[in-house]
Design a protein around this nucleic acid. Sequence first.
DNA 1: AAATACAGCAACCGCCTTAGT
DNA 2: GACTAAGGCGGTTGCTGTATT
Length: 258
Amino acid sequence: MGRSPCCEKAHTNKGAWTKEEDERLIAYIRNHGEGCWRSLPKAAGLLRCGKSCRLRWINYLRPDLKRGNFTEEEDELIIKLHSLLGNKWSLIAGRLPGRTDNEIKNYWNTHIRRKLLSRGIDPTTHRPVNEPNTTPKVTTISFTARNIKDEEDQKMINVKGELSGLSQEDEISSNSSQFQELLCPDLNLELRISPPYQQNYQNDQDMKQSPRCFACSLGIENSKDCNCSKNNMGNIASYDFLGLKTNGVLDYRTLETK
DNA sequence: AAATACAGCAACCGCCTTAGT
DNA sequence: GACTAAGGCGGTTGCTGTATT
């Protein structure tokens, strides 16, 4: 027996949203804010499932959405993030302000897949399409941060993730500079993922000048997503391997940015 | 001009995770 | 710890507009 439906299907509208429904939803959220999607439809006078309202708001009505065509810069960023994260669309979307996971997923399936194939790169594995298939190998990665407060934090920070799709031979070949150049010219895909090299700064001044943001770590300095120059408020920030801002301690919880 | 194929994308579905009890 | 409700996510579907025949 499966779980009960999230709402009473008999009395809910389905399919495309009308302008009036959009307006009702926007008005309600403006007045009451997001939250409790289950009760929202009734409260807002909508004959919709709560999930449907949430999707409509997040993917289409939210005021901070960018809309419009993806830039070349965004394309490359998505490709790089996908090579690291796989189909974790929400995580990828979290690194592209104004873009939604659904939008990125659709864009990937309709544009980027084709783009990569035309470059001779398998969009799933990010490896050349003519490379022989090898048995996938699961690789465990772990991060251990220093200066953690207590054992509980230690447990939370020791993240074990999995990166699949590389065999041992692949691991060796993927270390060749030629191969890496082919995949992403400025992205190190070495499997041993660890906290980024921490420079030993002589003083705070050096430290303030040096932290690299996510955009820079991906090789797109001077982009609009570059935060380096914005971080001049005296706060000493650093960035984890995905470029998420930390206060010097890697916290996997910040991976979820939505 | 009509029929068909294709591309793009909004929306749905079902599963998983999380929070509350 | 078990159970339930709700939120969130990724895969998939199906509608609509455009291109091609």
